[in-house]
Design a protein around this nucleic acid. Structure first.
Ligand SMILES: [Mn+2]
Ligand SMILES: [Mn+2]
Ligand SMILES: [Zn+2]
Ligand SMILES: [Zn+2]
Lengths: 139, 139
DNA sequence: GTAAAGAATTAGACACGGTCCAATCCTTTG
DNA sequence: CAAAGGATTGGACCGTGTCTAATTCTTTAC
């Protein structure tokens, strides 16, 4: 569990740790992602970032999210055919996905045991394993 | 393992079994899905269906795929943020996803052991569990 | 401090998967 | 055959995401 305060200063630090030049917009976007409980889509990031003063364009939001992904400062979660979710938690973990509300919830990887994955064909390596438990309201 | 021959007649049968009125277009689309080794996207379905004589519109392709999903004659696989894959294999199974080529490969569910999923919050039921192993060429 | 170079941001056009709609066509039934 | 309901259709439309050329901001060089 992370217990850091998500101040602008800490965001600058975090960006530098990932080799990213901290600009106004990048700091704001990082802050939006890390200070909100996980799993925002680009749209929401833009909304939060521009809530007070509109200062970050759509192009920059996407540029920046893709830069963060590239530098592995965040990861993406693909569960909805119509949009990507961005996840500030890069520690290995899995997800519940509420298909009714669109809500994503983390599942700690410690709890999970996964066995019996077949051997990979030669010439391939595993990039990651995603487990998605699709859930919905019971009645 | 299914060993059926995917004749038009068998497609008609299959459609009826799922309570779907078998029309020309639906038979062709079902045939495209079931006679090709799994995991086509809408685009490919349309290409195959219209390969000889163009006779099925984009609207009908999407209508029909969504109808098949509704009736659980096929399932969808969401791994690529830009398009949905349609899977004629509705028997529970998981997937390798080659992020370089976009190729999807089935993993038999028999082989897999998965333990330690946390209790669901009350009022929720599990719809399904998807395990996606993302792989890429090794060097 | 100023000028030039490089990095980042921007508006808006664009691409593309997917949905919607009103018009047409097909099939069934009486 | 006529009427009704079901299915299909072209094309407009929508939302996410990318691209581009112009602008602005930051860094470096003098
Ligand atoms: Mn992307
Ligand atoms: Mn869909
Ligand atoms: Zn997460
Ligand atoms: Zn499959």
């Amino acid at each position: 569990m992370r217990t850091t305060k998500y101040t602008r200063d800490n965001m600058v630090e975090l960006l530098r740790q990932h080799g990213i030049n901290p600009t106004h917009q990048r700091i704001e976007i990082a802050h939006a992602l890390f200070s909100h409980p996980g799993h925002l889509c680009a749209d929401q990031v833009m909304g939060i970032t521009n809530a007070k003063h509109s200062e970050t364009s759509k192009a920059t939001v996407y540029n920046t999210l893709n830069l963060f992904l590239d530098k592995k400062m965040i990861r993406e979660v693909i569960v909805d055919p119509s949009k990507v979710f961005y996840d500030p938690n890069t520690y290995p973990h899995h997800h519940f996905y509420n298909t009714a509300t669109g809500e994503l919830t983390d599942i700690d990887v410690e709890d999970i045991g996964l066995t019996g994955l077949p051997q990979l064909p030669p010439g391939l390596v595993t990039e990651g394993v995603d487990i998605i438990v699709r859930v919905r309201p019971s009645a």
